[in-house]
């Protein structure tokens, strides 16, 4: 990837530098720093209300940070930086009442790009072509002007695995060619496609790194038992965060000692193992931790 023309040095395509965004007394984004470099796929994760959407809006130049600064291609985001950026929103951002050809000519006129080649269906209304083709079209349009940075919002939610693999092939090919990619998702399979993850909770960036690095040594407990229904009921009654994995009983954010004691006081036996937590369980642990504010 070539150096950034405005800075003369190779640097991140997108930088959030201690960004805070407040709406009245509500702090939606709280002192978040992150960056996306050429050729890397960065995943932005967080529960609803974690601040992902607001952060993305500041990165796209659609909202101005209250404090801190955002740089896209080395400058404050505006319409010129927007031209170097491809965006696929969750709702895909297509015009359902226009045909495929009309959507293409609209997007390509806006970005002064060459129309992407899409077989058949040119004359059909976008609303009628089905979600799979709509998604392909949205991707093709976001890529038509060869953006240096791609921003994707839950790009493959609801897509069957083979089609999802094909879409990710496209995303990886872009990254291989030097495009930086920022993906917001709460879909664990998408998170696993990313090189690096940034985890947000209550407006703050609370963890960053690979999936393994973020999970760290957080564990969950699994109980192997002959009578999982009774075990489940007893642990549930004890107020523990119990779920089911097949016919094993699983508890996030709970030590094996706690589980053993709860089993004992219910007069039950079972083998308790500590296992590595999932990314989701780790997110729950972070989200449920008492706020220190």
């Amino acid at each position: 990837m070539s150096a950034n023309p405005t800075s003369g040095a190779p640097e991140a395509l997108l930088v959030a530098d201690h960004v805070t965004k407040r709406f009245g007394t509500f702090t939606a984004v709280d002192d978040v720093s992150m960056h996306v470099e050429p050729g890397e796929i960065v995943g932005l994760l967080g529960a609803n209300g974690a601040g992902k959407t607001t952060l993305i809006r500041t990165l796209l130049g659609l909202a101005v940070p209250t404090e801190g600064r955002v740089l896209a291609f080395g400058r404050t985001p505006d319409r010129t930086t927007r031209r170097r950026l491809g965006y696929v929103p969750q709702g895909l951002g297509l015009w359902g009442t226009l045909t495929v050809a009309e959507n293409i000519s609209f997007a390509c006129a806006a970005f002064e790009s060459a129309p992407p080649a899409l077989d058949a269906v040119q004359d059909r209304l976008v609303a009628d072509i089905g979600l799979g083709l709509q998604r392909q079209l949205a991707f093709a349009l976001a890529l038509a002007h060869r953006p240096a940075l791609l921003v994707l919002d839950e790009p493959t939610s609801g897509v069957e695995p083979l089609a999802r693999a094909r879409l990710w092939e496209t995303v990886h090919a872009q990254a291989d060619a030097g495009t930086g990619v920022l993906v917001t998702t709460h879909y664990m399979q998408e998170a696993q496609q990313c090189d690096r993850l940034v985890l947000m909770s209550r407006g703050r960036a609370v963890a960053a790194g690979t999936e393994d690095e973020i999970i760290g040594d957080t564990t969950a407990c699994e109980v192997e038992t002959d009578d999982w229904a009774a075990t489940f009921a007893a642990l549930d009654k004890a107020g523990l965060p119990v779920t089911l994995t097949g016919t094993r009983v699983r508890l996030a954010d709970t030590t094996s000692d706690t589980v053993r004691k709860a089993l004992e006081s219910a007069g039950l036996t079972g083998e308790v193992h500590e296992v590595k937590a999932t990314l989701e369980e780790k997110m729950t642990v972070i989200d449920r931790a008492p706020a220190n504010a």
Partner: peptide, 12 residues
């Protein structure tokens, strides 16, 4: 469309 934290609740 449910976020990861709520998904854990739902699964429970």
């Amino acid at each position: 469309g449910v976020d990861p934290v709520s998904r854990v609740d739902l699964w429970r």
